[in-house]
Structure formats: C-alpha cells, structure tokens
Design a binder for these strands. Structure first.
Lengths: 206, 206
DNA sequence: TTTATGTTGAACTCATGAGTTCAGAAAACG
DNA sequence: CGTTTTCTGAACTCATGAGTTCAACATAAA
C-alpha cells in the first residue's frame, strides 16, 4: 500500500497548508519553508511528496477548485424541487451563492487563478474542469426542467443561467472592492432580491 | 524646471515599459532590468526616476488605471443623446464596453490588481479612484436623465446601472476563460444583444 | 566653451529562497 | 525485538534579482 506510510499521511496537510500560504502571499512570495511550517512538517517532507514548488502549487489549486465547485453545485439543489414560490427559491439559491462567493478562500482562489494563469498556462485546465462554467451548466439543466414545466420562458436555458449568474455575482464584485470589503448579510440579501426581480421580469412566466 | 532634463524625459517610457513587463510576468517575476530594457533605458536611470520597484509598480498601475477609466467613461457618451431607438443605443454602448474589456492590457490590469492587492494594500485607492465604480456612477447619471425623460423606470438608477454592467460584462467573463480565449466580434454582439434585451424587459418603459 | 544635470554600461554587494544532503529520531510492521 | 520506511532539523549549494557605485558620456542652458 501507499496510503499508509511510516507515519501519518501528511499529504493532505501539505496541500492545505500550501493553499493557505499561497493565498496569503501569492505564488512567488510564498516560500516552501512557509508551507512546511504551516503544514506542521519539515521542508524535506514537502519535497518527498511534491517534486517541485510548481507541482505543489498545481495540486493545491486543483484541490481548492474541486472543493469550490462542489459547494456551488450543492447550492443549486433547492431548484430541483422548488415550491409554489419560484422567485423565493431562486432568491434563496442566489443568497447561498453570494455567501459562498464572499468566502475568503474562494476570493483567494480566484486571485491566484487570475494572477498565475500567465505563468502556469496549464491551470486553465483546472478552470475548465472545475470553474463556474460547470455551475452554469448545472443551473441551465435545472432551468431547462422548469421551462419544460411551463414555469420559465422556454427560449434558451443556457442564456438564462448565464444572465442569472451575472445578475447575482456581478453586483457583488462591483461592491466588494475586489474582495477587500466584507458585505453584511443584509446587503447580500438585497443583491439577491434585486437580481431575482430583474431575472423574473425577463424569464419567469406570468 | 523639472520637466526638461539633460536629455529627453524618459519617465513616460519607463512607466509604459514597466506596465508592459509587469503585465507579462507579474510583479515578482518581473525584473527591473527587464523594465529598463523594455523602456530602452539603463537600469540606474529607472532608479533615478523611481526610488523603488514598488513605487515603480504603483505609478505604472495608476497610469494604466486612469487610462482605462477614461476609455470606459468615453464609451458612455452616446447615452447623452440617444436617438429614438434607446435599445439600439444601449446595445452600441454595450458592444463598445465589451471590446474595451477584451483588450489585453485591460485584462492584464485586472489580473495585476487582483493578484497584488494583498501585497500592496494601497492600490485599493487606485481601484476606488479609477475603478468600475466610477463607470457605474457615470452610467447611473445617464440613466437618471433618461428616467426623468420618462424613457426608463424611475426607481433606482444606481441599481439599473449596476445590473446593466453585470448583464454586459458577466457573460463576457464567463465565456472568455479568464481572458485567455479571444471572443469574435459576432459573439460580443450576441452578448450585447442578449444583455440589452433582458435589461429592456426590466427597465425600459413600454 | 563651460557647467550642471541626466544617462549609460558594467561590475559590484547582499539578501532571499529553491532544492539537496545527511545523520539521527520516530513510527509502522513483522 | 529488529527492520524498514518516513520524518526531522540543520546546514549546505547555487541561482536570481534588488539596489548601488562609478567613471565615462551626452545634452541643455549659461
């Protein structure tokens, strides 16, 4: 087996610590020594698991992106069976998405993707595999069901999903000052409300 | 005078070259030597004008952000006197904004802001002074005039502006794969069209 | 031409951090 | 228990890049 080594498996601790440190200082400014300390591990141990600082970065980013995608897709669950009040359900989903988007680890993930995409062209694969496109697709699936049930205009579920996400997340990014300002719950709720109101005028039947 | 020195004033060349190099490699990976070469200047000359690599970065970012803001505000001009066809005017403005947003220097500016905001907390001032908030405000002003003229629902011009920007730029960011994929003109036009259609349903009078 | 200022290239110092080495400790396993 | 595997800490090599120094050079103004 390779799952149980001489000691505990430190791999996960290393990946977590790596993401934490990269999130704090950025790729170039973060030291492998810092990662080791954050993970409660010695520097050579890091190199036992990861050949490179670059490999370490890629694995840490991949893990964080997977995690983020799972959370977001899970947030769409209420749309599988919305009650009588579709706008209320949409508003609840929007609010959950907004809360997830204000999480500091997610903000850091986005920053890192944006900043290192030139230096690591291959992390684009991570975006394609675990990025917001996937959330859009999942949302479009839900909306397609609703259109089929006659509760949504039946033109283009992909476009509807795209615009819903834009109406929810766009104002957040505009107001959050690049993730530096922490919005209160009430403001998030206001954004969700406004987004759903506009979305409803364009897409919800009667 | 300090405007005319012993030779030509190299300051602008240094700032331009600095932004180009920072955009290519990121702050940490970019060398002052590279900046000097890009600007066609010797390394000590850079230190004659800028005390620090950090100062160099701040000045270069500020200049680039000012430039970007000017372009965007200028793009709103048609709304000062829209013809009979308000949706068409909005669509034209949206398309111009989309084109500006796909410019590689602007993408680089956003990447740099996102990635270095933790290491340079004070560039947040640049965002506040020259960021998209200013565009939102300018747009809200235009929309307020239109509301007063009875051509727009008169509830909240700030919200309308925010949602317009979200509907235009949100789908762009979703589709452009973090600025790596270059969209064709036709796709941009499609985004603008869809954005204005939804915006019109929610905000345009009859 | 003289003077003051700015520019140049090259060589320099110095700190930082990636990646390695190694002898020894500690845990898992028989 | 002994063996094997992994972890540890400290010290090491080595490349990179920020910032400086300096003597020679170019230019504008006096």
């Amino acid at each position: 087996m390779s799952t149980t080594r001489g000691r505990i498996d430190k791999r996960q601790a290393i990946l977590d610590g790596a993401f934490t440190v990269f999130a704090r200082h950025g790729y170039a400014q973060a030291g492998v020594e810092d990662v080791a300390r954050e993970a409660g591990v010695a520097k050579p141990t890091v190199y036992n698991h990861m050949t490179d600082k670059a490999t370490l970065f890629r694995h840490a980013m991949r893990a964080a992106a997977m995690d983020a995608l799972d959370q977001r897709v899970a947030a769409l669950a209420p749309l599988a069976d919305p009650g009588d009040d579709l706008p209320a359900t949409l508003e609840a989903v929007a609010l959950t998405l907004l809360r997830l988007h204000t999480d500091s680890r997610y903000c850091a993930l986005r920053s890192l993707l944006y900043s290192e995409i030139t230096h690591f062209p291959d992390i684009l694969d991570i975006v394609k595999e675990f990025g917001l496109d996937r959330v859009n697709q999942a949302l479009a699936d839900r909306l397609a069901r609703l259109a089929l049930a006659g509760r949504l205009r039946t033109t283009d579920p992909d476009l509807a999903a795209e615009q819903f996400m834009a109406l929810v997340l766009g104002p957040l990014e505009a107001r959050s000052q690049m993730g530096t300002r922490q919005l209160e719950e009430a403001e998030l709720a206001g954004i969700a409300r406004a987004a759903v109101e506009t979305f409803a005028r364009a897409w919800i039947v009667s």
